[in-house]
């Protein structure tokens, strides 16, 4: 009897302690509310943003006491939603863009700073159908090529020039559509795109694609970079550190569990085909996950290459301070 009473007391005590603990947790939450930040995506919801979905759904942001709003990108009412503009205006604290675009923006006096690279390998290629036998840049002479304006076009032009091609010899037009219809319909001979996206689309449409990878010609750039504003770097390095850590953890999650990542993609974009997203994600994982390089890492060499391309193209003044455009300070250098 005595013994059972003691056990009862113990249980009650434990319950009480548990309740106190809970209260403490609640107190903790209410004392320091999560920092709310906004990330402006560069494209519509799809597999490429899966690390952010994973970070949200797996509580990586919450672990860092962050409340993150993911803003869908792509084409809005007034054209393409430019993440750089959104961050500069302060509507978003973080954005996604390419390394080339960021260097140019910085050169134009827009104080943006790259903090991590989602992809370690560039997927950017000139994509054509196999029948057109476009295998080298020289094969593009006299052909019509649709390339996105901005950073993509800069690199594309630089690559042609580096191969001794007069830009006038190629009919390069602005790419204004998401899809590959102009290519498949024969309106253009080639398009600039990502092999893990448009490349897969061509295959899904039943064609054999040919790729001229820009990286094969030395134009290995960071094409998918998370950036923020200089003011945030100066004022809230801790916030950036937490955000970067959460996103890197999101990349870890996607690499470790692609199936889960695809279900998260479907949560944000229910209309997308699971199989197709899985194929694209599978193709992009080798670009995110490279042996010997930590997830999200940035190599100064690649930034230098990008810088050189832009200088060569006359898009940048040689006095441009490259180090101001990116920082490795928030990245864990250990794999």
């Amino acid at each position: 009897m005595y013994k059972s009473k003691r056990i009862l007391m113990l249980v009650l005590l434990l319950l009480l302690l548990g309740a106190c603990n809970k209260d403490k947790d609640n107190d903790g939450d209410s004392k320091t509310p999560a920092d709310t930040v906004t990330l402006q995506l560069s494209w519509v919801h799809e597999y490429s943003s899966s690390p952010f979905y994973a970070a949200e759904k797996n509580g990586r942001f919450a672990d860092q006491n962050l409340s993150v709003q993911l803003l869908e990108g792509g084409f809005g009412e007034s054209g393409y939603i430019e993440p750089i503009d959104e961050v500069i205006s302060g509507d978003a604290q973080f954005g996604l863009s390419s390394g080339v675009a960021l260097l140019q923006a910085r050169a134009e006096g827009k104080p943006v700073v790259a903090v991590l690279s989602m992809l370690q390998r560039s997927p950017f290629a000139i994509i054509s159908l196999n029948d057109s036998e476009i295998l080298t840049p020289q094969d593009l002479i006299g052909k019509t090529v649709a390339v996105n304006d901005g950073g993509a076009r800069q690199i594309y032009d630089a690559m042609l020039v580096s191969q001794g091609i007069d830009l006038a010899e190629v009919n390069t037009i602005s790419r204004l559509e998401f899809g590959i219809d102009p290519l498949v319909n024969g309106e253009v001979d080639a398009i600039g795109g990502w092999i893990i996206n448009e490349g897969v689309l061509v295959q899904e449409a039943g064609h054999e694609p040919n790729f001229i990878l820009l990286s094969d010609y030395g134009f290995d750039t960071y094409d998918f970079v998370v950036f923020t504003s200089q003011s945030l770097v100066d004022d809230s390095p801790d916030l950036i550190q937490r955000f970067v850590s959460a996103v890197v953890a999101g990349i870890d999650d996607v690499v470790a569990n692609p199936s889960q990542a695809v279900t998260y993609v479907r949560d944000y974009a229910p209309d997308l085909d699971t199989e197709g997203q899985r194929r694209r994600l599978d193709a992009s994982i080798p670009l995110m996950n490279v042996p010997g390089i930590p997830h999200g890492f940035m190599q100064p060499e690649i930034w230098s290459v990008t810088y050189q391309i832009l200088v060569d193209q006359g898009g940048l003044d040689e006095t441009f301070n490259l180090e101001s455009a990116y920082t490795l300070g928030f990245l864990n250098t250990e794999e």
């Binding site: 295998l135 080298t136 020289q138 990286s215 010609y217 030395g218 060499e301 690649i302 290459v305």
Partner: peptide
């Protein structure tokens, strides 16, 4: 400096292996 001078696969001539 990483430029492919020649290759058994002609397509690869002119590519860069620097990275």
């Amino acid at each position: 400096d990483g430029n492919i001078l020649s290759s058994s696969d002609r397509v690869d001539i002119g590519k860069v292996v620097r990275s």
